[in-house]
Design a protein around this nucleic acid. Structure first.
Lengths: 399, 399
DNA sequence: TATACTTTGTTTATCCACTAGACAAACCAT
DNA sequence: ATGGTTTGTCTAGTGGATAAACAAAGTATA
């Protein structure tokens, strides 16, 4: 108890050093290659301080000297690089009908990628599959000082603050402690995140959101989930359950949703909504199978008028929810991701036109609306980054 | 530029001292009376460190020694108190038809209060009135080391990050720089806040929200505005325009709002909505004047069945929006404030029953739903507290 | 009442991290 | 070759935290 209080509250030289070291490392990560002198002038730290911190980071293999740079009229600087290969991170996105796993270096560069289509796996089948995927990724990993520094996993459901999966309806999971299961097997820190939160983080780190401090990532898949980056930080809510915007009422006179409420957003603007609407309009599946998003895309490519109308309709419904988001958060950026992002071609212009249409001029001024550039990898990249960052910050603390 | 970078980024002993001093002051503010030894054990700081910081705070008149406390088996401790009378803060809530101004000490205790009913004032009339109110409050203020340390003002409209009032439709204000106007006259720091944000902060500081880190304050007046405390901090959005939830669409097939959108929440659940609905149901004003909230309350007190039905209807509409808020933020606490809070007697039970009705069990678990306990003073107290806190933090930095 | 033990708060010596400035090494320009 | 620059290290000094000693003021017990 008292220990914990101390950790949280006291500020001493130790903290100063830790923060400054992190500052130096961040500078290098952001703007490498870079000399010690550059870091000093960028951060405002003294040259000597930077020198000693840099030397420690070199000893820890977190950065590298890449030889002399170009002179600006005097002695040539020694350029420093972030050693992105000091360790590797694994990010796994568990979808409803796929598992996407990536191996990244500490910078988030993908080294290896595995996409496996699955269907109706039992939980033990899933864990077996996860283990074999992790083993595979580990086996192709190049030798490095730290090896696998962490595993991040994104799931389509609610995750508690402690990392327990509370409810993932589409996986039929409830109160599942996947974290301990994997941590015990691999003895590596594991982070479990909601898929939308992971995607938001991925976009913040690697997508268009790098410079933005307030980002709303709208994950449009079978349902709709939202990940929130507010004040530079992921906002998770009191119990880690924020962003359930799929069940935001946008029509209180609408049909009843499986959640019990009426007129939820995802009844109008999700992948499922799109398919239902298409079926209703008499669009039939090609081969007697189920109608899929992929088929709809093909029909749209072919210029099918009815399909285009359906997409327009869904776009209109998306706008309603997005406008609510703008009024609620006044975000800097909204990013549309997950499956429905493949409709970018048809949705982009209508959305740009109508999103923020009735918002105040200032509200709208520099609002950016993007489609995910990371495609299906937002969530996997996000959780991988989480695990990597966690390693770096813990590593800096242990000294 | 470089200066600013330094301020933001570098961590040195100077920062450590500042933070520790703030930590000591906070301890005293929170749990006075308290000895030096108590502070040391509470914060984890060394006794010597606490001693020297306490002595500095004493010299600055921010704390007081209140004589010996009770012994616990050894030397009697010297108890310390926060010197709440070291300075005073002014908080002004500019409403559509009233101006509420308070003078508080640094702890937020109200020393003087002025409530003035106004109607359709021009901007220059308003500023004249503000000046005379401020002068009045200053004249009744007891002598103190620091005098008036700041002025906070809450307005029913959007406020930019720089403190400019962008748009307050009900006051007919647009792009108004009230801050500079008052700062120039009184040479005291002035903080301008949106009324809902101010209310949220007031509730966080002095209401039921003291211990909570995620609070949504719903200000139901003529319109609806929302103030957000997320991760312990006021979330203002990218341009300072978050919380415009009054214009959240809850029925996209509904009537057109003056904002241009359809089916906005405040068309169904604000004071104006209540009055309109009452008129529609044939409830007529007593004396040929306009129908007011006060009259409706009186009728409800008298048990008027139709009025009670109207209130129930508005309650139902409130629930829809509140459920959206829960799904969006997963807050720890929702506080209903402003004018409509007077309907607590009739709304409390129905709201408790239906808010979170369809939310996940975990979502709902420890969600608190409160009506404002500060009544009409939430916003004024909030801005006054803002000004006071600003003084304290700046004061600690200057050394 | 005398003595031993506690608790409080100050003081002292020490440690740690940052800073300023001196300095050597490496480079450019004339 | 010489003087001026830039880079990076080293040294002395500063500010603040800590630990431990200590004095002051109390309680408990014989």
């Amino acid at each position: 108890m008292e220990q914990k209080m101390k950790m949280i509250q006291t500020f001493n030289q130790h903290v100063v050093k830790k923060r400054n070291k992190a500052l130096v490392l961040d500078s290098i990560k952001e703007s490498a290659p870079l000399s010690r002198a550059d870091i000093a002038s960028q951060t405002g730290l003294n040259k000597g301080t930077v020198s000693s911190l840099v030397n420690e980071l070199l000893e820890e293999h977190l950065i590298l000297e890449s030889g002399p740079g170009v002179s600006s009229g005097g002695r040539r600087p020694v350029m420093l690089l972030f050693n992105q290969s000091a360790g590797y991170s694994i990010g796994i996105d568990i979808g409803v009908n796929y598992i996407l796993a990536i191996l990244t270096d500490l910078q988030g560069t993908i080294c290896e990628e595995k996409l496996i289509k699955v269907k109706n796996l039992t939980f033990s089948q899933t864990t077996e599959l996860l283990f074999s995927i992790i083993d595979d990724l580990k086996s192709v990993m190049p030798p490095s000082p730290y090896g696998v520094v962490g595993i991040g996993i994104g799931v389509p459901g609610t995750v508690s603050m402690t990392g327990e999966v509370l409810m993932a309806p589409n996986l039929h999971w409830k109160d599942i402690d996947l974290k301990s299961l994997i941590e015990e097997k691999y003895k590596i820190p594991v982070k479990i995140k909601n898929e939308a939160n992971a995607g938001a983080y991925g976009e913040k780190k690697f997508g268009a959101g790098k410079e933005c401090s307030d980002i709303v990532y709208v994950s449009c898949g079978i349902g709709i989930g939202v990940g929130l980056i507010l004040n530079e930080k992921l906002y998770k809510g009191h119990n880690g359950l924020s962003g359930e915007l799929g069940h935001m009422t946008i029509n209180f006179e609408g049909p009843v949703c499986k959640c019990g409420n009426k007129g939820c957003w995802e009844l109008y603007a999700s992948e499922q909504a799109l398919i239902q609407l298409a079926l209703k309009k008499g669009i039939t599946p090609e081969n007697g199978n189920e109608l899929t998003l992929e088929q709809i895309v093909r029909l749209a490519e072919a210029g099918d008028e009815e399909v285009l109308q359906v997409i327009e309709e869904v776009g209109k419904n998306l706008v309603t929810g997005l406008n609510n988001i703008i009024n609620t958060f006044n975000p800097e950026q909204i990013i549309l991701g997950n499956r429905l992002a493949v409709l970018q071609k048809w949705l982009k212009e209508p959305l740009k036109k109508h999103v923020g249409e009735y918002a105040l001029a200032t509200h709208k001024k520099d609002l950016q609306l993007h489609f995910s550039k990371l495609e299906k990898r937002s969530a996997a990249l996000g959780v991988a980054a989480f695990a990597a960052e966690n390693f770096l910050s813990v590593n800096l603390e242990e000294n």
